[in-house]
């Protein structure tokens, strides 16, 4: 199962690749990266056959994470991909909206990687 990380900050790629170095090396997890909502949708189109777990930032220029979440949940119904939102603004409004749009989880930055690992493991198993 692939994990697609969506964030406009490019260094997020280096960060994830190192934080999950062991998991990647041991082929427990496979990561893909998109730097905007549009890129993420493009990736989904190309990898529609694969089961994908999405970790998306909310605040991005252009298509926001919430918009991306809405589109993914509308388009890919069976099986609905797991979408976890990550944002610097952990306010109620963002949280409620994400939940309303069908987000599977809601994390705030700075990301606690050990907690994230624990959350990811059962979902990709």
């Amino acid at each position: 199962m692939k994990i697609l990380v969506v964030d406009d900050e490019r260094d997020i790629q280096a960060l994830f690749q190192q934080k999950f170095r062991k998991e990647i090396r041991d082929h427990e997890m496979e990561f893909a990266f998109a730097f905007s909502g549009e890129e993420a949708l493009e990736f989904m189109k190309l990898n529609a056959h694969e089961a994908v777990l999405i970790l998306s930032d909310i605040n991005m220029p252009g298509m926001s994470g919430l918009e991306l979440l809405k589109r993914i949940k509308e388009k890919y119904e069976t099986p609905p991909p797991v979408v976890m939102m990550i944002t610097a603004y952990g306010d109620d409004e963002n949280y409620n909206q994400a939940m309303k749009l069908g987000a599977d989880d809601f994390l705030t930055k700075p990301v606690d990687f050990s907690a994230l690992k624990e959350k990811l493991k059962p979902k990709i198993a």
Binding site: E9, L15, K19, A88, K109, P110
Partner: peptide
């Protein structure tokens, strides 16, 4: 605040790493 928070997160994360 957001603009400062993002780089600070990277600083913290990479130094942990």
């Amino acid at each position: 605040a957001h603009e400062i928070q993002n780089p600070l997160n990277f600083v913290n994360n990479f130094s942990d790493l």
